[in-house]
Each structure stands twice: as structure tokens, then as C-alpha cells.
Lab assay of single mutants.
Amino acid sequence: PREAYIVTIEKGKPGQTVTWYQLRADHPKPDSLISEHPTAQEAMDAKKRYED
């Protein structure tokens, strides 16, 4: 089974940042970016789909 994890990042100019959620996995390479999402819920949904 595949495993993934969610990383929170800040995008934008200082003082005007927006939080994004990255879905990452250690396949095919360590810390590979799988997808980016504007909400934590979307990231969790993507994580479930990826791991299923």
C-alpha cells in the first residue's frame, strides 16, 4: 500500500501569504510532490484516494 503525508506551506509575498497543502510521498523518490491543494479537506481527500 502507498503512503502519503501532508505538508503545509505558505505561498505569496510576506504579509500576504496564503496557506496551501501539499500531498507528498516517498515514491518514486523521497519527498516527491504528488499534488497541491488550497484546503486541508481537499488534501485529506487526495491522500485517501492516493493511499487506496
Results as ranks from 00 to 15, higher is better:
24 R>T: 04
42 E>V: 03
42 E>S: 09
33 L>R: 03
45 D>F: 09
23 L>S: 00
44 M>N: 10
8 T>N: 06
19 T>V: 12
44 M>V: 11
17 T>S: 11
13 K>E: 15
44 M>C: 06
33 L>Q: 03
52 D>H: 13
48 K>I: 13
12 G>Q: 06
7 V>A: 06
11 K>R: 13
43 A>F: 00
34 I>R: 01
36 E>T: 07
32 S>K: 11
33 L>T: 05
46 A>C: 03
19 T>Y: 08
47 K>S: 02
28 P>V: 08
10 E>Q: 13
37 H>G: 00
33 L>C: 05
39 T>M: 03
35 S>R: 00
32 S>H: 14
9 I>K: 05
25 A>Y: 04
20 W>N: 03
19 T>P: 07
50 Y>H: 06
45 D>V: 09
37 H>F: 08
20 W>M: 08
2 R>V: 12
47 K>P: 00
17 T>E: 09
19 T>F: 08
36 E>A: 03
20 W>T: 06
11 K>V: 11
33 L>A: 03
23 L>A: 01
16 Q>R: 09
30 P>H: 10
50 Y>C: 02
17 T>N: 07
33 L>K: 03
8 T>Q: 11
30 P>K: 13
49 R>F: 10
1 P>R: 14
47 K>I: 04
15 G>F: 07
21 Y>E: 01
46 A>L: 02
12 G>V: 06
38 P>Q: 13
13 K>Y: 13
51 E>P: 04
16 Q>F: 15
12 G>S: 05
14 P>H: 09
20 W>L: 08
45 D>Y: 10
7 V>Q: 07
1 P>W: 11
30 P>V: 10
19 T>S: 06
37 H>C: 01
41 Q>N: 09
34 I>V: 09
25 A>V: 15
48 K>W: 09
23 L>K: 01
13 K>M: 14
40 A>K: 15
1 P>T: 13
31 D>K: 09
9 I>E: 03
20 W>H: 06
48 K>G: 08
1 P>I: 15
43 A>R: 00
12 G>N: 05
47 K>G: 02
31 D>N: 15
29 K>M: 14
51 E>A: 05
37 H>S: 01
50 Y>K: 02
6 I>L: 05
25 A>L: 06
39 T>W: 03
12 G>W: 05
19 T>L: 13
45 D>Q: 13
12 G>E: 04
46 A>Y: 04
16 Q>Y: 14
36 E>Y: 03
18 V>P: 02
4 A>M: 08
19 T>Q: 06
36 E>F: 02
2 R>P: 11
4 A>T: 08
10 E>K: 11
19 T>G: 03
51 E>K: 07
25 A>G: 07
29 K>H: 14
9 I>V: 14
47 K>L: 13
27 H>A: 07
33 L>F: 12
52 D>K: 12
43 A>C: 04
36 E>N: 04
29 K>F: 13
14 P>F: 11
23 L>Q: 01
16 Q>P: 09
52 D>Y: 13
38 P>G: 09
30 P>Y: 09
15 G>W: 06
24 R>Q: 03
50 Y>E: 03
38 P>N: 08
20 W>Q: 04
25 A>M: 06
29 K>V: 14
10 E>F: 10
12 G>I: 05
33 L>E: 03
43 A>V: 06
14 P>K: 12
38 P>C: 06
43 A>G: 02
45 D>N: 11
32 S>P: 02
32 S>L: 08
4 A>N: 02
2 R>M: 12
11 K>H: 07
4 A>Q: 02
41 Q>L: 10
16 Q>H: 14
46 A>W: 04
22 Q>I: 04
41 Q>T: 10
48 K>S: 09
46 A>T: 02
2 R>I: 14
18 V>T: 14
32 S>V: 10
12 G>C: 03
17 T>M: 14
6 I>S: 00
26 D>L: 11
19 T>N: 06
20 W>I: 11
10 E>Y: 11
21 Y>H: 04
1 P>M: 14
24 R>H: 07
31 D>G: 15
9 I>S: 05
10 E>M: 09
50 Y>S: 02
36 E>S: 05
32 S>T: 15
2 R>N: 10
16 Q>N: 13
23 L>R: 00
10 E>R: 08
18 V>Y: 09
45 D>W: 12
30 P>D: 07
9 I>F: 07
13 K>C: 07
19 T>A: 06
28 P>I: 10
3 E>D: 11
13 K>H: 14
52 D>M: 15
51 E>H: 07
52 D>L: 15
